[in-house]
Design a protein around this nucleic acid. Structure first.
Lengths: 226, 226
DNA sequence: TAACCACCGATTGCATCCAATATCAACACA
DNA sequence: TGTGTTGATATTGGATGCAATCGGTGGTTA
């Protein structure tokens, strides 16, 4: 889905094809926050920005629409998708059911070196830094914990959900500060511990409570969706 | 996603737009079996068949690719997606986690009349008929049981999974015959019973065992994927 | 005889041009 | 003064034509 370094499914996307390349560029801009929800995307403007015609931009927007990142209205235009609180909560409900399954699948093939790396990441997060580093390390931690899974369709659905909620996750973290998310460190350690013991059920339940906690936190801060 | 009558999410797809209309037509052909997995889809051929240019066909193929129904290779062509046994099993693993959630969400708003209708459908299936009727009623039963859910993203993911596995479900049923799926009737009755008692946990577990049974049956008949 | 290379047809990807549609502002009218 | 209507403008959707790329076939050579 994404050609960036922070990808989950590295399927060979022919980025030689302009429409896919453009889709990746726009996607990155949405994910890193330079394109905020509600902002309009004009085909002509982006076409000349990327030095291409409007056709590949149009197709790129279609791709992003199916990712849920862009909302298209016929004969009218394209906007960066805006999520309501209900939609975001729904995404977390789905993640709560699916990510444990992905973690379980990954655990089947997870080697000790990767578990050590996860441990190191959890410790590094605890050292504390700025919000952007916190978000980056958190993403890295979870993606690495899923990296040994061979279930590509599942990974793709989950990556989609991560992407579509990314903006609101950042907004929430910026709002409450990382010190308010200290409890996440405990969750991460619990997950690493369960993985090291090769206990899939325990790993699942630790991850469930981690995701559920974030969901309820988001519900307590509806101003993120204003 | 789909403009046909057998749709789950009736979001206003502007079918005035040619690319969406064409996507629906091709999707229907894939779902009803007239376009089998592995078959090639030539842009020019389908363009003149639908009385349009190649551009909307190309965009329609992109849409179908993101639905997982079509596989695109750059500068080479498009084929109806073919699933391996592993991919199909993976789809069922995901369904096993997600559909119970959708059923639970639906149950919150399900009225008694709909439950009666589900009961009637379960009975009608038991009366027995040909394979095609069996498949149609089964689909109708489950979609109706989900119809009161307001979680659109969840419904969309599940519809996608149904669509991508539809061909293999049909192949399996044709192979073993409907009499071999008598046990499904019991599952359906269990689900209706749990819904009538407004017991979400019981409804979930009945549905889980229903889906899991189908998954293991599919694993026992790998020739479906030959 | 088998393997390798060059060429050619077929098919898709992209750019340019034209048509259709929505948005917005000015204007007439009650 | 408020409202409905109508026109101009901006923006997207689609058709045609050309360039780029892939797959197969024939010929050549070791």
């Amino acid at each position: 889905m994404n050609n960036g370094s922070h990808t989950l499914t590295d399927k060979e996307t022919p980025s030689a094809v302009a429409s896919h390349r453009i889709a990746s560029l726009i996607r990155d801009q949405i994910l890193d926050g330079s394109l905020a929800p509600g902002e309009r995307i004009r085909q002509e403007e982006f076409a000349e920005r990327f030095g291409a015609s409007r056709i590949p931009v149009k197709e790129a927007l279609r791709l992003l629409e199916s990712d849920g990142l862009v909302t298209l209205v016929a004969n009218t235009g394209a906007w960066v998708s805006r999520m309501s609180e209900e939609e975001c909560v729904e995404a977390y409900q789905i993640r709560e059911r699916l990510e444990p399954l992905l973690l379980r699948e990954s655990l089947k093939n997870l080697d000790d070196a990767t578990i050590d790396a996860l441990d190191a990441l959890a410790a590094e997060m605890e050292a504390g830094a700025d919000v952007e580093t916190f978000l980056r390390l958190d993403r890295q931690f979870h993606l690495l914990s899923y990296s040994a899974a061979r279930t590509t369709a599942l990974a793709e659905i989950i990556q989609r959900l991560w992407n579509s909620t990314q903006h609101y996750r950042r907004a929430y973290t910026l709002l409450v500060g990382i010190e308010h998310n200290q409890i996440s460190h405990s969750h991460h350690h619990l997950i690493v511990d369960a993985l090291r013991r090769r206990d899939p059920d325990d790993a699942e339940s630790a991850l469930v409570s981690h995701i559920r906690r974030t969901r309820s936190e988001l519900s307590r801060h509806p101003e993120v969706f204003g």
